[in-house]
Structure formats: structure tokens, C-alpha cells
């Protein structure tokens, strides 16, 4: 198929940036979206124009490195990551607009690449269970009810991609935050730090400049890992309880 691509180009963090238009031809349905961009980049290199910078690594939907707003939707039209989106989701002759994540807390580095280090700092503020190496008891000494284990797993599948933030009109990272709070809060091992964790992580979230949650739900709709909205209710419940406990 032949496509018209409108792509955001920005040389660095201070450049104002603007949309450039490119044409690509001979794209196969079986290509992934990023392979289509690879084709464009090969063309640009040939023509002497610097290739477009975009992030990707695993290209299997698990590392969370890829991003992209595709026609205004984070990761494009399907419930998956950009690297797992395939060109069969588009039609010959389509015009596709490609932009970076838009959020004050994720400044653009270059072209389609953004800085998501704020997520690491949120984890640093409490997104862990303190268990030094070597101090662990025998694994089966603490049984975990299967339902808790399953819920913990389901929300622990968050890949830290930031689509939830990009989708949210407030630029909130509540889905990402709620997923971690829920993952660790479902497990017996996560109980000792449960209340300090939610308070510290929320404070860091706000400090990074992510907005508040007003229950719009765009985040869960955009999440490639289908992290459910109820993690945000869990986050709010835990936060209230923590406050009551005087944290």
C-alpha cells in the first residue's frame, strides 16, 4: 500500500518542532508499524535527509520502549503497543499522523523520542518491597491465595510505556501508579510498606508534574496491557487508609 505520513520532527528539547509530510510506497500488510518507519528511514538516508528518531527495542510488546501517538491515539488504533501494531490495521491511501507522547512530564528529546525518567523516579520513591538479597525466607513458607496472586500478576504486566499519560487530558499517571500499588498491595510480602509506599509514590507522582485523575478513563482505554481502571480506585482507597493511619 501507499501512505502519506505526517510526522513530528524536532531536532532537540529546545527546538520548537513541526510536522513534515512524507510519502511511502510498497508497504506490505504484514509489516509492523515500526518496520514501515524503518522503510521510510532507509529512504530518507538514501535521499540525504537524517532518519527520524523513534524509540523501540524488543519489538514484541513487552519492554515498553516504543511509543508514538498515531492519529491522535497512543500506540494507534488497536489495543497493543506500536511495535505490535501491523499495517493490516490501515488502508491503502491512508494519511497517518505520527507524534511523540505529549505531556509536560515527558519532555521531547528528539523527533518522536521522549524522556520518561519520571517513571523511574516514581518507582524509586517506593515501588518495591524491601528485601535485601539473601534475607528471603523459603519461598513456600508464605502461601499467597491464588486470586491475589492472579490479580497481582495481571496488574504487574504494566510495561511502563506511558501511553496512559499520553492519553489522559490531565496528563495523569494514575494508571501506572495504581498498577504498582495494586501489584505490591495484593501480596502478603507487600503489606509492611503498603501505607508509606502509596503516600511516597503519590507525592513523587505529583512532584514530577503529572496531573490529577478526574475519572475520564482514557488511560485504561489506551493501555496496551489492559490494566483495568479499578487500580485507580485501589490507589485512592489505599491513599485514604494511609492518611487515616497518619502516614
Amino acid at each position: 500500500m501507499n501512505l502519506t505520513l505526517k510526522i513530528w520532527r524536532q531536532t532537540d528539547a529546545v527546538d520548537k518542532g513541526k510536522i513534515h509530510t512524507y510519502e511511502v510506497a510498497g508497504i506490505s500488510q504484514d509489516m509492523s508499524f515500526l518496520e514501515m518507519l524503518d522503510v521510510l528511514n532507509e529512504q530518507l538516508n538514501e535521499l540525504g535527509e537524517e532518519p527520524i528518531a523513534f524509540d523501540s527495542d524488543c519489538r514484541e510488546g513487552i519492554c515498553g520502549m516504543c511509543s508514538l501517538m498515531i492519529n491522535g491515539e497512543p500506540h494507534g488504533p488497536e489495543v497493543t503497543t506500536t511495535c505490535q501494531l501491523h499495517m493490516r490495521s490501515f488502508n491503502d491511501g491512508d494519511t497517518i499522523t505520527i507524534e511523540p507522547w505529549r505531556s509536560g512530564a515527558f519532555p521531547v528529546v528528539k523527533d518522536l523520542v521522549v524522556d520518561r525518567s519520571a517513571f523511574d523516579r516514581i518507582i524509586q520513591s517506593g515501588g518495591y518491597i524491601s528485601a535485601n538479597t539473601g534475607s528471603a525466607p523459603e519461598a513456600n513458607s508464605v502461601p499467597v491465595p491464588r486470586d491475589n496472586a492472579v490479580r497481582a500478576f495481571n496488574v504487574a504486566t504494566c510495561i511502563g510505556c506511558g501511553a496512559c499519560v499520553a492519553a489522559c487530558p490531565n496528563g495523569s499517571a494514575s494508571l501506572f501508579l495504581g498498577a504498582k500499588i495494586t501489584h505490591l498491595g495484593e501480596l502478603p510480602q507487600g503489606q509492611p510498606e503498603r501505607w508509606s509506599r502509596v503516600v511516597d509514590m503519590t507525592a513523587q507522582h505529583d512532584y514530577e508534574g503529572f496531573g490529577g485523575c478526574t475519572n475520564i478513563g482514557e488511560c485504561a482505554a489506551a493501555c496496551p496491557k489492559e490494566i483495568p481502571l479499578d487500580v485507580i480506585s485501589q490507589l485512592n482507597r489505599d491513599l485514604r487508609t494511609a492518611m487515616k493511619h497518619g502516614h
Binding site: N140, A149, H183
Partner: peptide
């Protein structure tokens, strides 16, 4: 065997049986 102990202590959500064991 120490690895599994360590990971469980960190909150790695391994698959479990109905009785709650790994």
C-alpha cells in the same frame, strides 16, 4: 533455589496453585 526465595520476597507474582503454593 535461593533465587526463587529471593524473587518471591520481592513480590514477583509467580503462578500458584489453588492452595497458594508455587
Amino acid at each position: 533455589t535461593n533465587i526463587i526465595d529471593q524473587c518471591v520476597a520481592q513480590g514477583v507474582p509467580f503462578a500458584r496453585e489453588y492452595g497458594g503454593l508455587l
